[in-house]
Design a protein around this nucleic acid. Structure first.
Lengths: 117, 117
DNA sequence: CGATTGCATTCCTCTAGAGGAATATATACG
DNA sequence: CGTATATATTCCTCTAGAGGAATGCAATCG
């Protein structure tokens, strides 16, 4: 069981505070650690540690400027995750197809909703 | 900090064995627990427990048939996750835009790759 | 009916990893 | 220089939750 990119990315995103950091980074083009500390309410060491995990999954990248580190979102990791979920798109396509079918053919749509999800 | 649908879904997916179950369910339209036990190599109680977490996040649904439970993917949870990552699509669009720009204007693309990610 | 099968649940244990405090390191500033 | 600031890292603690064994509970089979 080797750890793939997808594993790295989805493991990293599977933590609420890290998702919060990603959302904060989405607003500002670029953020320093201290800004993320203020905005997130977490303590500085936690922010740095979470950022390390995110960077390792290529979900964020860093630019060093003096004693500042400017973090920003990294499209590579984000796209890996997006693609993984996209591979399931047939599931919700099937969902709408079935719904269309029901609406157009079933005179009593209250029944037979088994597994229409 | 209330737990949203997105939190429920991404927390659930943030576990390798649960992702494995989702992938197994993607192949077969529908699977019993015992089939998932065989296919995953996990023990029955773990499979049942993971399925419970997935069902709670609306990532799978169940159909009961006698003493069998037929699980299948649920488009609702999958789409919640997909949508969350889609909201970041501007990040990788920006990435390709910048790449296009470099390719078309920069005579020496080996430099200045800072943050092109 | 008893035995078996399919699955859920309970209880226990154990570990990964999140959080906290202190410290290290590097840069800037006076 | 010494001091302050920005961030990373180390070490420790503690808890959520993953895994295992046993059990509960229906439904089916003979």
């Amino acid at each position: 069981m080797d750890v793939t990119d997808t594993d790295l990315v989805l493991d990293a995103v599977g933590e609420p505070n890290r998702r919060h950091l990603l959302e904060l980074l989405h607003d500002q083009r670029e953020s320093t650690v201290s800004h993320l500390v203020d905005a997130s309410g977490m303590r500085q060491p936690q922010v740095s540690k979470h950022l390390k995990v995110l960077a390792n999954a290529e979900l964020v990248s860093v630019r060093t400027d003096g004693r500042f580190r400017h973090y920003r979102l990294d499209g590579r990791g984000l796209q890996v995750a997006h693609d993984w979920f996209s591979s399931f798109d047939d599931v919700w396509h099937a969902r709408f197809d079935t719904l269309d079918e029901l609406v157009s053919t079933d005179p009593n749509p209250d029944q037979a909703e088994e597994h229409l999800r």
